[in-house]
Computed example of a mutant assay.
Amino acid sequence: MSTATVSTIRDRFLRSHERPVWQERPTWAGQGLKLVVILAMIVAVGYPFLLAIGTSLSSKAELAANGGYVLIPDHPTLEAYRVVLNGGVVTRAAMVSIGVTTVGTALSLLCTVCLAYGLSRPGTFAGKPLLLLVVGTFLFTPGIIPNYLVVQQLGMIDTYGAMIFPIMLNAFNVIVVRGFFQGIPEELHEAARLDGAGDFTVLWRIVLPLSKAVLAVVGLFYAVAYWNSFFNAMLYINDPDKLPLQVVLRGFVLEGDTFNAKAMGVSVLPATTSLSMAVLILAVLPIIVVYPFLQKYFVKGVLTGAIKA
């Protein structure tokens, strides 16, 4: 056997056993670059949040001495949180946000699961046109005026329903859940049919217990959207008692609204910046508390549904 032949065979053998780039052992330079990027992201995200916490715990004198913002207060105080929670404005708005988020998330999950299950089953009447209609909403979205006219014609102006129904169904979440449902083995459906189970029984007893991951992720998507939504409330809500927390926060931080000292039952209010940061922390706290419990479902739920869609 010639030397050229041996070299060719050896090269083919080496190429056949080469690993893809993403399976190669990372280099020290690559690991160092990843570490630098992660640390930079932690600082970019964590520093503003810690600054908000520190400022909310600071007194007027300390804020004045440090230019209005404090990272680590020397003498932390909860006065700003006490004033905010005792005033009634923020607590009432928080209850509105909690109610809208809870009811809206439940209705959104119900509609998403029903529509996604129908679109995932072969032989569904008008399944393809409905799927095209859902996908078409990615390209053609209604403007503010058509949305307002629809809500007005339905008689939902100045009602809690105006903060739920216009955003109750998300096309992306429907596609993700549909893809996840399609990944469930068909043999399970056939076995249930042989036992005399109908569509509702199959969905409730078989499909939903196997879809906890994707439902947790999609439910979190909906909950975050409802909790952070303020634009619909600004458009459709006229009664100040029905405004959600995000609108109150926006008005207080951006428009310079202040609390009334007499209404708070105090003689002197804390610094406006401290009150603003206290409201900000209270607004983001629920999502921060819930997210770690659902984080483990993200890769399994979203990637599986998206890949199979």
Results as ranks from 00 to 15, higher is better:
residue 58 S to T: 13
residue 209 P to C: 09
residue 38 I to Y: 09
residue 18 E to L: 14
residue 20 P to Y: 02
residue 75 H to V: 15
residue 66 N to W: 14
residue 118 G to V: 12
residue 207 V to C: 06
residue 218 V to N: 10
residue 180 F to E: 08
residue 279 V to F: 00
residue 137 T to A: 03
residue 69 Y to A: 12
residue 268 V to I: 05
residue 44 A to R: 06
residue 79 E to P: 00
residue 95 M to K: 11
residue 122 P to E: 12
residue 217 V to F: 01
residue 172 F to G: 02
residue 100 V to F: 06
residue 42 I to F: 08
residue 97 S to K: 02
residue 278 A to P: 14
residue 101 T to V: 11
residue 150 V to I: 14
residue 167 I to T: 03
residue 60 K to C: 12
residue 257 D to Q: 15
residue 93 A to E: 05
residue 49 F to Q: 03
residue 300 K to H: 07
residue 150 V to T: 13
residue 297 Y to A: 08
residue 303 L to E: 07
residue 137 T to N: 06
residue 117 Y to P: 05
residue 162 A to K: 01
residue 219 G to P: 07
residue 279 V to S: 05
residue 22 W to Q: 03
residue 97 S to N: 00
residue 14 L to G: 00
residue 103 V to C: 03
residue 192 A to G: 04
residue 132 L to I: 03
residue 271 A to M: 09
residue 33 L to I: 12
residue 108 S to N: 01
residue 112 T to Q: 09
residue 211 S to H: 10
residue 192 A to H: 00
residue 45 V to W: 11
residue 45 V to Q: 07
residue 208 L to V: 15
residue 111 C to I: 15
residue 224 V to H: 05
residue 124 T to S: 10
residue 142 P to W: 04
residue 205 R to K: 12
residue 208 L to W: 03
residue 90 V to D: 08
residue 281 I to L: 00
residue 201 T to H: 04
residue 173 N to R: 09
residue 242 K to Q: 14
residue 209 P to R: 09
residue 116 A to H: 11
residue 16 S to W: 14
residue 27 T to N: 00
residue 290 V to E: 06
residue 3 T to I: 15
residue 9 I to G: 07
residue 34 K to G: 00
residue 26 P to N: 02
residue 143 G to V: 06
residue 273 T to K: 15
residue 75 H to P: 13
residue 182 Q to K: 14
residue 72 I to S: 09
residue 131 L to Q: 07
residue 185 P to M: 00
residue 280 L to S: 15
residue 184 I to H: 02
residue 244 P to G: 05
residue 85 L to N: 04
residue 249 L to D: 07
residue 297 Y to W: 01
residue 28 W to F: 13
residue 230 F to R: 07
